[in-house]
């Protein structure tokens, strides 16, 4: 099946700075894709190129098999939810939502029906006559969403739509997005710098760094099998142990040799903190922990559902372990960190 959105060698620079290196990307019908990266990585430029607000320097963009590279935004089957919402301050909520339909000359009765439907979907059915200035941040956010959704776009583009909201509202809106995506279907492309948001919303994440897509996969894939040191560090917390790999074994910089297939030469061994088990006596570690490392406890913090132990390995690297119960560990204690090599990821450094 042909992809709904296809980017072929699309690149963009501003003056001497490159915002997006030529990249290709295929997004299928019904996907909820998140483009994730730190600020300045080119993710918003990428989204704005799909929306038609930025013309690429090279490459082409296809939507539904048709080349739209040079088409202005009003001629594209995409609609965007803007970071600052971009609501029309001189129109009411309903007028905002109806605007695109009026431009498209949708008949009045049909228009009223679709606006009501859209307001219903975002649960603001009673506020159609309100001025947008009288809305709260979360409500404005939802009006911006309704204004785009009422157009029934083939692709809905969302540019950091939740960044202006506080944490509680952000979590509630994430739930709303999931519900609305399930209800209306369609393809959503969602730009964010918040990895937790990307993980909780998207079925597919493209991680961007310095204008390149450095990894593209399911949230679980990206968490468990980060393709680079950057991805490992950006998505969740990770222990990064440097070393040298050869013959299915890894010699970490502290001298310890652990089993581990992967690259030859300098490597980074990525171990998620929840995969680490700590024990004062190495013999007490469970059998599946076939990789072991000596370390000194630096701090133990009780967080409720979990206990966070920061450690320093004998080679001086900082390490972190998350466990469900607090052991009798205190700062200064000598411990053995153990994990299953099945849970580690060895990446060429």
């Amino acid at each position: 099946m042909a992809p709904l959105v296809e980017l072929v060698g699309v690149g963009k620079g501003y003056g001497s700075a490159t915002a997006v290196h030529p990249l290709s990307l295929r997004i299928g019908e019904g996907e909820f894709v998140s483009i994730l990266g730190p600020s300045g990585c080119g993710k918003t430029t990428l989204l704005r190129m799909i929306g038609g607000f930025v013309t690429p320097d090279e490459g082409s963009i296809l939507i539904d098999g048709r080349d739209v590279t040079r088409k202005p935004p009003e001629k594209r089957a995409t609609n965007m939810v803007f970071q600052g919402y971009g609501l029309f301050p001189h129109m009411t909520v309903a007028q905002n939502v109806a605007y695109g339909l009026r431009i498209a000359r949708v008949a009045r009765t049909e228009r009223a029906r679709r606006v009501a439907e859209a307001l219903d979907l975002i649960r603001l059915a009673d506020l159609g006559d309100r001025a947008v200035s009288a809305l709260s941040g979360g409500q404005r956010q939802r009006v911006a969403l309704a204004r785009a959704l009422v157009m029934r776009p083939r692709v809905l583009l969302l540019d950091e739509p939740l960044s202006a909201l506080d944490l509680k509202l952000r979590l509630a809106m994430q739930e709303e997005f999931r519900r609305i995506h399930a209800q209306v279907g369609g393809t959503f492309i969602f730009v964010t710098h918040d990895q937790a948001e990307a993980m909780s919303l998207a079925s597919r994440i493209c991680v961007m760094e310095a204008g390149r897509i450095v990894q593209d996969g399911t949230p679980e894939d990206i968490y468990r099998r980060p393709a680079s040191r950057f991805v490992a560090g950006f998505i969740g917390e990770a222990n990064l142990f440097e070393g040298v790999g050869s013959d299915e074994r890894v010699r970490l910089s502290c001298g310890t040799v652990i089993p581990g297939a992967g690259a030859e030469g300098p490597i980074v061994c990525v171990v998620r903190p929840e995969a680490v088990t700590l024990a004062a006596d190495p013999a007490a570690l469970p059998d599946q922990c076939d990789a072991r490392l000596f370390a000194t406890v630096e701090d133990v913090v009780f967080l409720g559902p979990e206990v966070r132990t920061t450690l320093r390995t004998d080679s001086g690297a900082q390490a972190l372990a998350l466990s469900r119960t607090a052991g009798p560990l205190r700062p200064g204690d000598r411990v053995t960190m153990g994990w299953a090599t099945a849970d580690q990821q060895v990446i060429a450094a």
Partner: peptide
């Protein structure tokens, strides 16, 4: 708010 103008373009 330049996004409002962009939103209008985006809506056709």
């Amino acid at each position: 708010d330049h996004a409002a103008v962009e939103a209008a373009r985006d809506l056709g």
